[in-house]
Amino acid sequence: MNANALLQPLSMYAWGIGNALFLLVASAVISTVLALVLTFADIYGPRSLSRGIRVYSWLAQTTPPLILLFLVFYGFTSNGITLSPMNSALIAFIAFATAYNFEIFRASFDGVPKDQFEAARALGIPLSQTLTRIVFPQMLPIAIGPYVGRATVLLKETSLASAISVSEIMNVTGGQIYAGGNPLLLIGIAGGIYIVLNLGLIAIESRMSRRVATTHANAPVKG
């Protein structure tokens, strides 16, 4: 067995992992920003806007991700717009990740006691300061568990992007199997990669949770 035969699949896996992580991080970051905008638009915007957001959220959550992925990829190409598989995957992932994150942030907002707003209003504190310095910091510890939980699912769902030939982990694995590799071994390797990456996410989550818990001391208020 020469070195090249081992190095080449390794570099392909590295490429696949890189693409999967890029898809995860880029869609997580963008969907987080969009979800926060939707959260506050839902709370402070007109009712018609809220209704629109609800319909979007409901559609994006109930449509299987794979269908969303195909819809974006084939939808654009059949209309004469060339979109790379990776960009198509990004759009689809952002579309459904935003909906999930919106629901998480919306619920976290509801988890902040209303008396916090009341106290701030009585003190004459502008709403912008109340939201950024009182409400948002209190949403964090509530949101962090479900948010990272959703991110681990998102990482696993990046495997779906192989269906539109984004060369992420499963796409690389499929290529290796096609080239004559041992299917069980290769799928085992791919599974192992997802487990290791997700363990990393979970480790980050527990560290962040602990930090938020100690700085905010967010235990229930004693009577």
Partner: peptide, 20 residues
């Protein structure tokens, strides 16, 4: 807001900012 800064209010459930 400026009108409210003239009055100070104390609530039944204290309503302290929990993250501060």
């Amino acid at each position: 807001r400026t009108h409210r800064t003239v009055t100070g209010m104390v609530f039944q459930q204290f309503n302290l900012f929990r993250n501060l």
